[in-house]
């Protein structure tokens, strides 16, 4: 049961990866990046619970917040880029 949920999650992860590959607009790519950053960290949490491993879970929570911070920094740099 848990494996089936994990596999469907990986399938859901493939959708934004395809989107990031086929779309040429930078903001659409950023949206796909945001989706992937959230989905991978949730997957890390699921794997952590599946294996009952506390350290992986801590890393998953940290990545959940850090990945979004990187996204915001990059978004601001790209916005300044379009201004000039």
């Amino acid at each position: 049961m848990m494996n089936a949920i994990l596999i469907t999650m990986i399938l859901a992860l493939l959708l934004p990866i395809y989107e990031a590959w086929q779309d040429d607009n930078i903001w659409q790519k950023m949206l796909a990046f945001a989706s992937i950053a959230t989905k991978t960290s949730i997957l890390i949490l699921v794997v952590a619970v599946l294996r009952d491993d506390w350290t992986i879970g801590v890393v998953g929570v940290l990545i959940l917040s850090v990945g979004n911070a990187a996204l915001m920094l990059l978004a601001h740099v790209l916005r300044r880029l379009n201004e000039l």
Binding site: I26, W27, M30, L31, A34, N68, L71, M72, A75, H76, L78, R79, R80, L81, N82, E83
Partner: peptide, 15 residues
């Protein structure tokens, strides 16, 4: 939530 606001602000302001 914050990320949604930031992305919306950045994508409409600049591009």
């Amino acid at each position: 939530t914050v990320l949604g606001y930031v992305l919306a602000y950045c994508s409409t302001e600049g591009g």
